[in-house]
Nucleic acid binder design. Structure first.
Length: 277
DNA sequence: CTGCAGGCCGGCG
DNA sequence: CGCCGGCCTGCA
């Protein structure tokens, strides 16, 4: 067990449950088991500290600080957004402490390909099916968990193998992506350095990755905050709060209004509307 | 039984 | 080009 002092505003619950990750398990004592790339952690917040344990405590503090983005100064972003309009101001003040988790790129890509026209429980179930079948087993705190496999682990997994993990029609997209990665036709690292427009286009060259999925990947795995994932929820919020309809109009509005932090703006607006009803 | 969920693809006008 | 039907799966 390690203890990490929370020095900047950070809301553990909102950060974990706001929809950016799917493989977490709330425990009876209100702590969370979260499956990271290479280990399982248990985490809870109390009195301004995070308490974290893991099946592997090597470098745990560094990994947790990085995963939850604890050292990022969100005040810079929040102060920028607050000035834009009253609704985003309310959303920012309400959501302060909601951090963007830095997720593993490969898992994020698979995760959001699966998310297309799908529900949250089903997405989680599919991911867990894949992990259970092809990922490394971890026993933690008497419970059995499975790490998400790497693309090398999935090299010989066929389309119908994916289908049996209940991913539905997205099976062929997952297979194609895994193949491209194993052949070196797609390089996960290059999305860090490409600018956002190029990264979006490059991601969308892959079947199963459209504008929304590509935006989520760049936001949640690559810390590109100038994307604007438009899903059905965003459409509803933009209609009810700003009376704006149509994907193109929404995108134009978002870029004009929230600029380089439009990706965070929508996270705040979504979190606000989700928890403040 | 239909409808639909954090979209995307492919075909058609 | 923009528009629209269909799509795995599980649940209401």
């Amino acid at each position: 067990m390690i203890k990490i002092k929370i020095e900047k505003p950070f809301k553990l619950d909102d950060t974990i449950t706001c929809g950016q990750i799917f493989r977490f398990f709330k425990q009876e004592n209100d702590s969370y088991d979260v499956i990271l790339k290479d280990r399982v952690i248990n985490v809870y917040e109390k009195g301004g500290f995070l308490y974290v344990s893991s099946n592997d405590e090597k470098d745990l503090e560094i990994i947790v600080r990085n995963y939850f983005d604890l050292d990022n100064d969100y005040d810079v972003i929040n102060n920028y957004l607050i000035k834009k309009d009253d609704k985003i101001k309310d959303a920012v003040l309400f959501s302060k402490g909601l951090n963007m988790i830095k997720q593993d790129p490969f898992e994020t890509i698979m995760e959001y390909i699966i998310s297309a026209n799908n529900g949250v429980p089903q997405i989680a179930s599919s991911l867990n099916n894949i992990a259970k079948k092809y990922g490394k087993k971890v026993i933690f705190d008497g419970k059995e968990y499975y790490l998400f496999p790497s693309y090398k682990d999935l090299k010989d997994v066929s389309i119908s193998d994916f289908r049996s993990c209940k991913v539905g029609f997205r099976d062929k997209y997952l297979k194609a992506m895994v193949d491209k990665l194993n052949k070196g036709e797609v390089n996960l690292d290059e999305f860090y350095t490409l600018d956002t427009a190029d990264a979006l286009n490059k991601l969308m060259e892959n079947n199963g990755i459209g504008a929304k999925v590509a935006s989520c990947i760049l936001l949640f795995a690559y810390q590109k905050y100038d994307v604007f994932p438009i899903d059905t929820w965003v459409k509803k919020i933009m209609k009810s709060d700003y009376n704006i309809e149509g994907e193109n109009k929404i995108r134009k509005f978002a870029i004009k209004t929230y600029g380089k932090y439009s990706g965070l703006a929508i996270q705040y607006l979504f979190n606000y509307s989700r928890n403040n009803k």
